[in-house]
């Protein structure tokens, strides 16, 4: 059973990425809902404050960082303080929204890809002298689950040590086979297409696999391998 897929970039080292989050660190849906409610209340309060503030009717710049430029010099200090406080509130709200978004993302992943069925495939690349990556196709149990085209910037990121999560999905417990096809330009700038496969046993717990592209200096050829991170 395979449900869903997603790709994302993570400039993380593989072992760190492979570690599942600590049980206590993940937010629960109740916590996230409470946070969302609090952020909403803050947004409403900030909007109300903005409506009631003396400078609200005037088209003041959003940054509000130039109190000296205010035309009403007699009321400048309180207006400037109000604007500064509003600006701080806005920054805090933005931070809260980003935090909430992160929590929701983690929660969504945990719901869609529970640890007992989760399988994640990462891609890493070393040197890249004999192979310029163009695309990777992944098949699990003979079913294509992803086909990813790489732009030059993405290849650069991989060469700088980035590890990309190419696929995230669900698999039932048991034996499975993963086949990965790599295409690009090989030695002497020729079209190059190679495959690698791995039979693996999915037990209870998340499964992490890494597609490794390395240069084999002795053979002057690229080498493709799939590593099973237990």
């Amino acid at each position: 059973m395979m449900v869903g897929m997603s790709c994302s970039w993570a400039l993380l080292s593989m072992p760190a990425a492979a570690q599942s989050p600590a049980p206590g660190s993940a937010p629960t849906s109740a916590e996230t809902a409470a946070k969302a409610k609090a952020v909403r209340a803050q947004v409403e309060a900030a909007l109300a404050a903005a409506d009631n503030s003396p400078g609200a009717a005037s088209p003041a710049p959003a940054t509000g960082s130039a109190p000296a430029a205010s035309p009403a010099t007699g009321t400048a200090p309180p207006a400037a303080a109000d604007t500064r406080s509003l600006d701080e509130n806005t920054q805090q709200l933005k931070k809260d929204v980003v935090d909430l978004n992160r929590d929701l993302f983690v929660l969504e992943e945990e719901l869609l890809f529970p640890a007992n069925t989760q399988v994640a495939v990462y891609v890493s690349m070393d040197v890249g002298e004999f192979f310029a990556l163009d695309s990777v196709t992944i098949k699990i149990d003979n079913k294509e689950v992803t086909n990813y085209l790489y732009t030059p910037r993405e290849v650069d990121a991989l060469l700088k040590g980035g590890v990309q999560r190419l696929y995230l999905g669900n698999l039932k417990v048991g034996n499975h086979e993963l086949v990965a096809f790599f295409s690009g330009k090989g030695p002497d700038n020729r079209d190059y297409r190679r495959g690698a496969s791995l039979k693996f046993d999915k037990s209870i717990g998340a499964k992490y696999l890494e597609l490794k592209i390395e240069d084999r200096q002795r053979k002057m050829q690229p080498e493709f391998a799939i590593k099973d991170w237990e």
């Binding site: 163009d134 695309s135 990813y148 085209l149 790489y150 732009t151 030059p152 910037r153 993405e154």
Partner: peptide, 15 residues
Amino acid sequence: FALRSFGGTNVRISE
């Protein structure tokens, strides 16, 4: 999306 150009390079619009 990511598509291949007629020139051979790949383009991803989110970039």
